[in-house]
């Protein structure tokens, strides 16, 4: 938390009644920060006034948290928690209804040999697969998440992106994973990015007054610097993001512990300043139980208990689930499992 925003919004700091980013009250909290998003200049000054990030120090902190040793009961807890936080994902050109249905079945019952294994949080698909997934998951409580806004590059006109979003919501998507316009961000057109997120959020609304939850993907591998990641995190949260998400999984560098830690810190600071709770989703490249547990440790020691639920932390992953299941089997049986004892999807 820094002076520049914390002190200006001191009244909020002293009455931090937490409200969820997707709740009705959040809009009022964000309205209290309206002056920093009033125009391009104000937004730029605010984002550039955020404290800098020392890359080496951030990486060192993430690495140190990665040395926590999570054993026995803590490991069992972490594995089940991680499974319950997975957005089980298929985002391939070759996706078919059959493939999506298989993934949904896996999400509902990850370990056919052990019904105590928790189900995943969501199935994440392209918009045209939302209806299929929705049907397959009917009654399971598992959400359908859809990428949108010309995923993964985000290179389409705004009306197309909004149509993409509305289409997915209409098809039953519970959550929308939008990508930001990295080109606009990198060229300094922050207000353009801000407005786009706001408009997509509006497009998430359903006729009944409810709305799909909005995850905003930064593609941090393309933003490159940690300073950019902190700025874009604040920008997205100010625009109304319910979740901030690292990556599409489609570029060379996806979620990393330091980037995720930095986003967790931004969420922590945003919460301290506004009382609004925002979720975090690292995506791409998280394949092992060991990695997943490192992320949970980061959440635990940065944001704490309130974020240790699928409502506020997700893993965007596909192969991670099987490794978690094998580790889970190891814990319950005492012997190492193998890939033949978990299902391929």
């Amino acid at each position: 938390m820094t002076l520049r925003y914390a002190r200006r919004y001191a009244p909020l700091v002293t009455m931090p009644i937490t409200v969820p980013a997707y709740g009705k009250e959040a809009a009022g909290r964000l309205a209290s920060m309206a002056d920093v998003t009033a125009d391009d200049g104000a937004l730029r000054r605010f984002l550039h006034g955020l404290p800098g990030v020392d890359a080496v120090g951030l990486q060192a902190r993430a690495a140190t948290l990665g040395t926590r040793s999570i054993k026995t009961t803590a490991k069992a807890y972490a594995i089940d928690l991680a499974i319950s936080m997975i957005d089980l994902t298929t985002l391939e050109g070759a996706d078919t209804p059959g493939k999506v249905r298989a993934l949904c079945a896996k999400g509902v019952s990850p370990d056919p040999t052990d019904r105590t294994a928790p189900k995943v949080a969501a199935i994440c698909v392209y918009p045209d697969m939302v209806a299929t997934a929705k049907e397959a998951l009917n009654g399971s409580g598992i959400h359908v998440a859809s990428v949108a806004t010309a995923f993964p590059a985000g290179r389409a006109a705004l009306p197309v992106k909004l149509a993409d979003t509305r289409d997915a919501v209409a098809a039953g998507a519970d959550e929308i994973d939008m990508v930001i316009d990295r080109g606009a961000f990198l060229s300094g057109r922050y207000m353009s990015v801000f407005e786009e997120i706001k408009k997509v959020k509006e497009a998430c609304a359903r006729p009944d007054g409810s709305a799909a939850h909005l995850k905003v993907i930064f593609e941090t591998g393309e933003l490159q610097t940690y300073d950019n990641v902190r700025r874009v995190s604040w920008l997205a949260m100010l625009a109304g993001a319910d979740f901030i998400k690292t990556s599409t999984g489609k570029v060379a560098v996806n979620a990393t512990p330091p980037v995720t830690l930095l986003m967790l810190e931004a969420v922590r600071d945003f919460h301290a300043a506004t009382g609004v709770q925002v979720g975090v989703k690292p995506a791409g490249g998280i394949r092992t139980t060991k990695d997943a547990i490192k992320y949970l440790v980061m959440v635990n020691e940065t944001l704490g208990e309130p974020w240790l639920t699928a409502d506020w932390f997700r893993f965007g992953a596909s192969s991670l689930l099987n490794d978690l299941l094998m580790q889970r089997q190891k814990l319950s049986t005492g012997r190492y499992s193998g890939p033949d004892y978990v299902t391929v999807d």
């Binding site: 938390m1 820094t2 404290p51 800098g52 990030v53 120090g57 060192a60 902190r61 810190e265």
Partner: peptide
Amino acid sequence: FDDAPIDQAVEG
């Protein structure tokens, strides 16, 4: 200083 990278300063 007031322009420090605060999170890393805290770690330091």
